[in-house]
Amino acid sequence: MKIKIPLIIFIFFIAVLFFGLFIETRTIQSPLIGKKLPNYELVELNTGYKSDIYMLPNEPFLLNVWASWCLECIREHSVLTNIAKDKKLKIVGINYKDERDDALGWLSIYGNPYLYNIYDYTGQLGLDLGVYGVPETFLVDKNKIIRAKHIGAITNDIYQQQIIPMVEKINEGN
């Protein structure tokens, strides 16, 4: 009896450390998943027209946060271009804390896979979305509920193996 309790505690402790070795410690689950997108009143990047939550697509879509100063975004861009070509999902961009000219120039160099871009110059929308590491991508359904979030660049694998099945699930649910 006397030895059992310390032994259990010790084994438990070692187990925690052991399994701790294999968990990803860096990514933090967003508390916004399952919640509605926050309201915003911003402008469209290119045209300068008013842009708000009601203008978003009426179907599941990707909301991709990017900036011209973000190096990872260049790497991600070819993947986004493929997704756009695939025509299964629309992508709305949030241009985050950027200069308009830089952003437009960047799009003309690398191509524009976005349906349109919300211009978040102050970063307030990014803050409301809990953005901390550009690029970040949200999967939003037609009711404007955030279903998933990915921090860092999207890869083809992530698109094929995680995003597509999730979109199918969302579509089936409706």
């Binding site: 006397k2 030895i3 310390p6 032994l7 010790f10 070692i14 450390l17 052991f18 070795l21």
Partner: peptide, 20 residues
Amino acid sequence: GAFILLFLTIVVGGSLLIYF
């Protein structure tokens, strides 16, 4: 990590067993 953990388990676990 796994190696140190193994070593830690042997050293600490062993010494605690001897202790009890």
